[in-house]
């Protein structure tokens, strides 16, 4: 009985950091790919039409802000998990 309690204690001790890492790590995959695509396409657009670079950059930042939000939720969640 005492052994089982100890085991549970250890499981919590070990599981929390792993869970935190998983939460943020998984949450970062999608936005990582998304921002990669986004910026890549934006650079492509700027290279094709340098005169539109300002507009593209603004839109790019906006898109990054939206995409990044998901990763940030993961970051916040990793602190909430305990």
């Amino acid at each position: 009985m005492a052994d089982l309690a100890l085991l549970a204690q250890e499981a919590v001790n070990v599981g929390v950091p792993i869970g935190k890492g998983l939460v943020y790590g998984l949450a970062a995959i999608g936005p990582g790919i998304g921002i990669g695509f986004l910026v890549g396409k934006a650079v492509e657009a700027m290279a094709r039409q340098p005169e539109a670079a300002g507009m593209v950059r603004t839109t790019m930042f906006l898109g990054i802000a939206f995409t990044e939000a998901l990763a940030l939720f993961g970051f916040v969640l990793s602190f909430i998990v305990s």
Partner: peptide
């Protein structure tokens, strides 16, 4: 049942500890 209860007790304790201990940097 006792095992489950002790796990629940531990979890509650851990949560209490977390609340009282280091504050959440977020």
């Amino acid at each position: 049942l006792g095992a489950i209860a002790s796990i629940g007790l531990l979890a509650a304790e851990a949560a209490e500890e977390a609340a009282a201990g280091p504050e959440n940097p977020i």
